[in-house]
């Protein structure tokens, strides 16, 4: 079956996956962009990609966090008990993601505002550490949620770290994907020579992800049959995307970027479905209160209004901005 999600959870699952994908795009820009800006600051390179990233990073983080609230809401509907249990097992160590994000957010502002290279490097370094910690924590909690047999022992031992062998390769897979997503987004603002450099970053990202997949397969990871169709779609999309990046490397002004964006979007959507499929085994029967809850029409109308207002805001900025004298 191509669509692995049976009702009555379908609606929540679709919203969860879509909002999660949007969240991932934004936080990818943040983590990979901060790392890129740090590397260029360490190399003392004047780089338009890094400068643009530094300028945009606080805004992107704000959007990424806001976008992350939606999947956080839907995950509590779908996997309430495993999600809460994993939260509680990791305890304050898990809660540290919030101060890490606050520190990271202000580090990005500092990196943007300062003219002192040393402070910029320090601020970007702090940002990379904070956001990597958050990415690691989410990878950890995702796996811990599914490992019910480990809960009791972990609680008894008072462990706050889930040191399962799959955590690091899985994190590596995401870090690779984040490099590619950063390059895709950044390329839309980039000039031709910059796109060539971004193509290298994107291809390197895919290589890192491929290495992570090899490590996961060696560690007995499997893709459940319900997700197979999506796996093939993802592989095809990644193949097209890789070809697109090679094209951009050779002809940066061509239509390669459109192809790459379409293919990476398809790869991301297929990827989040493949990621979700194994977790479906832990999905709970929907609770009556959740199934019977009303309010969807209000949400749908507000969502339409919200999209219209955000589009209007973007157009206002574009059309009405007075050029600086």
């Amino acid at each position: 079956m191509m669509w692995p999600f049976a009702s009555p959870h379908s609606g929540w699952l679709v919203l969860y996956l879509l909002t999660f994908a949007v969240h991932i795009v934004l936080v990818s820009y943040v983590l990979a962009g901060t790392t890129y800006a740090l590397i260029q600051a360490l190399r003392k390179k004047q780089d338009p990609i890094a400068e643009r990233a530094r300028d945009l990073l606080p805004f992107m983080l704000g959007l990424g966090i806001t976008a992350g609230v939606a999947p956080l809401l839907f995950i509590q509907l779908l996997y309430q008990q495993p999600f809460y249990t994993a939260n509680l097992l990791l305890g304050p160590r898990w809660g540290a993601v919030v101060p890490a994000l606050i520190v990271g957010f202000y580090a990005l502002y500092l990196a943007k505002a300062t003219q002192t290279l040393r402070i910029r490097r320090l601020a970007l370094g702090v940002g990379v550490v904070c956001f990597s910690f958050v990415a690691w924590s989410w990878t950890e909690i995702h796996l811990l949620m599914q490992d019910q047999p480990a809960w009791r022992e972990m609680y008894a031992a008072g462990d706050r770290m889930y040191a399962q062998t799959g955590v690091l390769p899985r994190l590596l897979l995401w870090l690779g994907a984040m490099m590619t997503l950063f390059a895709t987004l950044a390329a839309w603002w980039a000039a031709a020579p910059e796109r060539r450099r971004l193509a290298v970053i994107a291809l390197a990202g895919r290589a890192v992800s491929a290495l992570a997949v090899v490590l996961l397969v060696m560690g007995d990871a499997t893709v459940i049959s319900a997700a197979h169709g999506w796996l093939y779609l993802m592989i095809a999309a990644v193949a097209i995307e890789v070809a697109g990046w090679v094209w951009i490397r050779l002809a940066p002004d061509g239509a390669g970027l459109t192809l790459v964006t379409a293919a990476s979007t398809a790869a991301l959507l297929a990827g989040v479905v493949v990621r979700e499929a194994p977790r479906l085994a832990t999905i709970e029967p929907p609770r009556a209160a959740a199934l019977e809850a009303s309010g969807f029409p209000v949400f749908a109308l507000t969502a339409v209004l919200g999209i219209a207002l955000i589009v209007w805001i973007v157009r206002s900025i574009r059309d009405r901005a007075v050029p600086p004298s």
């Binding site: 919203l15 809401l73 839907f74 509590q76 969807f296």
Partner: peptide, 12 residues
């Protein structure tokens, strides 16, 4: 969350 998720989504 169970009871008010659509309103929470609206707030979001």
């Amino acid at each position: 969350i169970d009871e008010f998720h659509w309103l929470w989504a609206t707030e979001w």
